[in-house]
Simulated assay, not measured.
Amino acid sequence: MIFAITHTLLPLAVIIMFPVLNAVNRSLVSAARTLGEGGAQTFWRVYFPLTMRGVATAGLLVFIVALSLFITPALLGGPAQTMIGQLVIEHINSYQNWRVGSALAVLLTLMTMLAVFAGDWLFSLSSAMGGRFETAGMG
């Protein structure tokens, strides 16, 4: 099941990260090599800080899409591999327990919002777009 979900969502991550990784000035990497940095040190001190926002954005979007998957785990996974989307559907459709299904859906929504706000706070994702509350042409 994990292999199938990874196979499904890897193209999304690559499409999001490719422009960010491609935009890094190659002369900075060459300069770090010239100044004596090794391959790993060059990656961690130069390349990774410049691409961290793009990688974080890709991770956050893949996480959100993975939360909404319920067909892939239902077809490939067993009872021991249940995702929260499957639990919501099971409680509403099979058990007719709307209260638990609704509570799980609200919990899923709140956890997703928490992940988005935590990602924004940790990686300053909204400041890459010019600020949190600015609109185009105003500010």
Rank of each mutant, 00 (worst) to 15 (best):
L87Q: 13
G101H: 03
G36T: 01
P79H: 13
P73S: 04
T82S: 03
L35V: 03
E37Q: 11
S68P: 06
V62W: 00
A32E: 01
M52T: 14
L104H: 05
T57M: 08
T109W: 15
A31R: 09
F48V: 07
L104N: 03
G54E: 02
A103Y: 14
S30P: 02
L104W: 06
I89Q: 12
A31S: 06
G38F: 08
S94M: 13
L35A: 01
S102R: 12
I92H: 09
M83C: 07
A105N: 09
L28P: 07
M113R: 12
G101K: 09
Q81F: 15
A105R: 06
Y47H: 09
G101W: 00
T34L: 07
L67S: 14
F63G: 01
L114W: 12
A115Q: 04
L108D: 09
V88Y: 01
P79K: 11
Q96S: 15
V62A: 07
Q41A: 15
V29R: 07
L67V: 12
L75W: 00
H91T: 11
A32F: 00
H91N: 15
P49C: 02
P73F: 00
T51Q: 04
A56K: 06
V100L: 11
V62L: 06
G36M: 00
L122I: 00
V100M: 10
R33S: 07
Y95T: 13
L69M: 08
L35I: 00
V116S: 07
T109Y: 14
I64H: 03
Q86M: 08
G119R: 08
V55M: 15
P49F: 12
F48W: 14
L110V: 13
T57F: 03
R45K: 10
A74H: 14
Q81G: 08
G78P: 05
G77H: 11
S68E: 13
F63H: 02
R99E: 15
P73H: 02
N93F: 13
A56V: 01
A40T: 12
V116F: 06
L69Q: 13
R53K: 12
W44E: 14
N97A: 03
L75P: 04
G54Q: 03
L107Y: 14
I92K: 09
V88M: 06
I92Y: 02
V116Q: 06
L60T: 02
A32C: 01
L67G: 10
A32M: 04
G119A: 09
A40C: 10
G38N: 05
L76G: 08
F123A: 04
M52V: 10
F48Q: 09
T57L: 11
A105H: 11
H91R: 15
G78W: 08
T57D: 06
F43L: 07
A115R: 02
F43T: 05
T34R: 02
M52C: 10
S102D: 10
T82V: 10
R53Q: 11
T51P: 05
